[in-house]
């Protein structure tokens, strides 16, 4: 079967790839674009380790066909930090020891960034439900939730400083 030609934007870079019609976005990211930050924990959309943003919407890249991202915008964990500045979620995960093995961390970073893009002042319950699609088996979530809440606070402080 002929491969499909896809032109898309990944982490701000415009690029092309060829893929099989049945190939997932996750497989293309990992195997064709060498963006191995998105992880495969289940391939059924249950664990969230492959979370990416597709046109600013949080999706499990294992459930998206690569061909679907033609002419769309994809953001992976590799694109969350800006230059040498970590996103506050990343920084707070480090400060809070919000990761142990770290395999779920890329998905948590993307999902939490997406939450804070939508809701700058989430409650603990809102954070917990937003991240309910991201399995972590090491931490019991406590330090992850605290990190995301603190990241939100940091970003609100930064915004109020800028507007002042």
């Amino acid at each position: 079967m002929p491969k499909l030609h896809v032109q898309t934007s990944v982490n701000g870079d415009t690029l092309d790839f060829l893929c099989e019609p049945a190939e997932t976005l996750l497989d293309v990211l990992r195997n064709r674009l060498n963006l191995t930050g998105s992880k495969e924990g289940c391939a059924t959309g249950d664990c969230g380790a492959c979370s990416v943003l597709l046109n600013d919407r949080l999706v499990a890249s294992c459930l998206v066909l690569a061909a679907e991202v033609d002419d769309q915008r994809v953001l992976t964990v590799e694109g969350v930090a800006r230059g040498d500045a970590l996103h506050p979620v990343q920084q707070q995960l480090l400060e809070h020891a919000g990761l142990q093995c770290g395999i779920c961390t890329p998905g948590i970073v993307v999902a939490a960034k997406s939450l804070l893009d939508h809701n700058p002042n989430p409650t603990e319950t809102e954070v917990r439900f937003w991240l309910a699609g991201n399995l972590c088996r090491c931490t019991g979530y406590d330090k992850i939730i605290r990190a995301v809440l603190d990241a939100a606070a940091t970003m609100r402080d930064d915004r109020s400083r800028v507007s002042a």
Partner: peptide
């Protein structure tokens, strides 16, 4: 004390290499 782990940056940026990578 509670310093930031040395392997942390690679793990929050997706650079750390796991078994399937």
């Amino acid at each position: 004390t509670r310093p930031i782990r040395h392997d942390g940056l690679d793990k929050v940026t997706g650079r750390a290499n796991y078994g399937a990578d």
